[in-house]
Lab assay of single mutants.
Amino acid sequence: MTEYKLVVVGAGGVGKSALTIQLIQNHFVDEYDPTIEDSYRKQVVIDGETCLLDILDTAGQEEYSAMRDQYMRTGEGFLCVFAINNTKSFEDIHHYREQIKRVKDSEDVPMVLVGNKCDLPSRTVDTKQAQDLARSYGIPFIETSAKTRQGVDDAFYTLVREIRKHKEKMSKDGKKKKKKSKTKCVIM
């Protein structure tokens, strides 16, 4: 069974824990209790493949930012979460993405942009803004509501699919490099 290491990042209060708990335990946590770091595991079937999701729910508070490099190193894919009623959390996505790329030393890291709290009427981040940002990053965008469960499975499952595509691409690139290195030079 394939294991996928997913990391949920975003500013404090955007609903990272609520999304994760909704996926794992099928219930909505409405009281806000700032996370330092929590880890969850769940076995699911995605596109006919049974897999184990190892999900790291991270601290959004700035005082825990020193811990970010460590979990970013171990993560295979990242859910970059903002709240649709919090423009600052949307603007912060850029910083999370840049930090992930720096730590992973790669421009090509599996990510999904997630606009959470889409059940709320007080939207300050337009869907088109988020779609445009995701398009500019070359990553999928999904709106979710941890409260109603809308888009929750889709967000995590899409990230797994992005990781699969990335692994497939990397193995193809690896095979191309191996083929090239088999060419021999004969000096007579």
Rank of each mutant, 00 (worst) to 15 (best):
L6D: 03
Q61P: 03
L79N: 03
L120F: 09
T127R: 06
D30I: 04
L52A: 15
E63F: 01
Y64F: 04
L159K: 02
S181R: 05
V45T: 12
R68S: 04
N26F: 09
E31Q: 03
C51D: 11
K16A: 01
K182S: 06
C185D: 12
L53C: 13
M67W: 15
I46G: 07
Q131V: 09
Y96H: 07
R123L: 09
V8G: 06
D54S: 14
D54W: 14
M188S: 14
K178Q: 10
I187F: 09
Y4M: 15
I24F: 15
K147E: 08
I46T: 13
G60M: 00
Q70P: 07
S181A: 09
E49R: 10
G77K: 03
K179R: 04
G12D: 14
I187P: 15
S39C: 08
V29P: 04
G60L: 00
G77P: 03
S122P: 11
K176E: 04
Y71C: 14
I139F: 06
F28A: 00
E62I: 03
V7T: 09
M111A: 04
L79V: 05
M67C: 04
Y64Q: 01
Q43M: 13
K5T: 12
M67G: 05
L79W: 01
G115T: 14
L53F: 10
E63G: 02
H27S: 15
D119K: 03
K177G: 11
K182F: 10
S65T: 07
T183S: 06
V160F: 09
L133Q: 08
I163T: 04
Y137Q: 09
Q99P: 01
G77Y: 13
T35S: 00
G60D: 01
F82V: 15
A155V: 07
K88L: 10
V114L: 09
T20R: 00
R149Y: 11
V8C: 06
Q61K: 08
K175W: 11
V8Y: 01
D105P: 05
T58S: 09
K180E: 06
S17I: 01
E107N: 11
Q61E: 11
L120N: 15
F28V: 01
V109D: 03
Y4S: 13
V9A: 08
N86A: 12
R135W: 13
G138T: 06
P34F: 00
D30V: 05
N85Y: 08
E31N: 02
E49V: 10
L23Q: 14
E62V: 03
T127W: 05
K16S: 12
Y32C: 01
Y157T: 08
M111S: 02
V125S: 09
P34K: 00
G174F: 11
K5C: 08
T58R: 00
E162T: 10
T50I: 13
D38V: 01
T50A: 11
V45C: 08
Q43E: 13
L23T: 14
T50W: 07
K177P: 15
V160H: 04
T127M: 05
R123E: 13
A11H: 10
V125R: 09
Y137G: 13
K16D: 05
F28S: 01
E107K: 10
G15D: 02
C118F: 09
K88N: 13
V29I: 07
S181C: 10
Q43G: 11
A11R: 12
Q99Y: 04
I84G: 14
I46R: 14
M72Y: 02
S65Q: 11
R73M: 08
I24S: 01
L159P: 01
V29M: 08
A59I: 00
P110C: 04
K5N: 10
M188P: 15
R68F: 02
D30E: 13
C118V: 10
A155G: 13
E107F: 07
G13F: 11
K42F: 11
E162I: 10
D105K: 02
V186T: 04
H95A: 14
I84K: 13
A66P: 09
G138C: 05
S136D: 15
I84V: 11
D108G: 06
D57E: 00
F141H: 06
I46P: 13
Y71G: 14
M72Q: 07
R164F: 07
T2E: 14
Y32M: 01
C118D: 09
A130L: 09
F78G: 03
V44E: 08
D69E: 13
F28Q: 00
H27F: 15
A59W: 00
F82L: 10
A66L: 09
E37S: 15
D54E: 14
M72S: 05
S17C: 02
K5H: 04
A11M: 08
V125T: 10
R41D: 01
P121Q: 11
L52Y: 14
T20V: 09
F82D: 06
P121C: 08
Q131T: 10
E168V: 06
E98R: 12
Y96N: 13
S65F: 12
E63L: 02
V9W: 02
I139R: 05
K128R: 06
R123C: 11
N86W: 02
Y137I: 09
V103Q: 04
M67F: 15
K5D: 07
K117D: 13
L120R: 13
C80N: 03
K167C: 05
T20W: 00
V81R: 01
K169V: 04
L52V: 14
K5V: 05
S65N: 03
L56D: 06
K117A: 14
L133D: 10
M111E: 02
G151Q: 04
L120S: 12
